[in-house]
Design a binder for these strands. Structure first.
Lengths: 144, 144
DNA sequence: GTCCATGCAAACTGTTTGCACGCGC
DNA sequence: GCGCGTGCAAACAGTTTGCATGGAC
């Protein structure tokens, strides 16, 4: 009945572990990698629990999920400064960058079309400085 | 040996059909919907062929794939003017919009970090004008 | 002691693939 | 008629879920 009543959540070893690994890695882990990293540590954890913990932490606003052009999700520690991602199609490295213009754009759109924007996802891909130097196989159909 | 030699591609009924449906729909179909629409027409086609045709057409630059925050892909006819998408989390409608600033942003980033950007994906979600009017269940954790 | 969280395995969704047949060229 | 495209079903990856047990509070 009382929907405002906070549910009793438990801070288990596994949840702490998942959050810890994400924070330490500083990167963009997928669930599988996270699971494997957890295994290399002593802690026993199952893949299902990794997913459940991630869902929990995401819901709590402690981690964020990203879709970096792959068919599976990547997770990173929630940050205060919004930032975006560039993925190199050749070497796979992910570069983070800030771009305040994006928020302006969101506000502009918000006002123009009267939308309430709650999520924003900007993802670029292409070739990083190093990889662009090497000869690309044919013209990498530049669509932009 | 001759990598520049064009492969002989065939324009089969199924491929024509897939392209036709995408063009007519004007929308953002996923493979399943596309498959069902094809079935309602006379044409016999399998889901596997839908995927294969989409891959083919995508490769040919005739259709583009979008990830609209869902766990599955959406496809639309390739357009000359770049545009982006907003998905309403409440009613599910997809709103397209143009935003030249985005390309400027990409160029800016390209120059600043010396990247070669070939793909750009900007996706917003939140609540549309109609849905934002109705009372939302609690504060829709606005992260932006 | 109560209940939520976990582990396991099975289910599930979206997508891809191997192989034999069919059909565009 | 050659060889690519198709259909079918099975395989696949990532993710979710049912149920019995375990552990946080």
């Amino acid at each position: 009945m009382d929907t405002t009543r906070a549910r009793a959540h438990r801070l288990t070893r596994q949840r702490k572990l998942v959050l810890e690994i994400i924070k330490e890695s500083q990167g963009h882990l997928d669930a599988e990698t996270l699971y494997l990293q957890a295994k290399t540590r002593h802690a026993p954890i199952s893949l299902a629990t990794v997913y459940r913990s991630l869902a929990f932490l995401k819901d709590a606003g402690l981690v964020q999920e990203q879709r970096l052009g792959e068919d599976h999700g990547h997770f990173e520690s929630a940050q205060t400064t919004p930032h975006y991602h560039f993925t190199c199609l050749s070497c796979g490295q992910v570069i983070e960058f800030e771009a305040p213009q994006v928020l302006e754009l969101a506000r502009w759109l918000s006002a123009k079309k009267n939308l309430q924007v709650t999520e924003l996802n900007l993802h670029l891909s292409g070739y990083c400085a190093q990889c662009a130097g090497r000869s690309q196989p044919a013209a990498p159909k530049t669509r932009i």
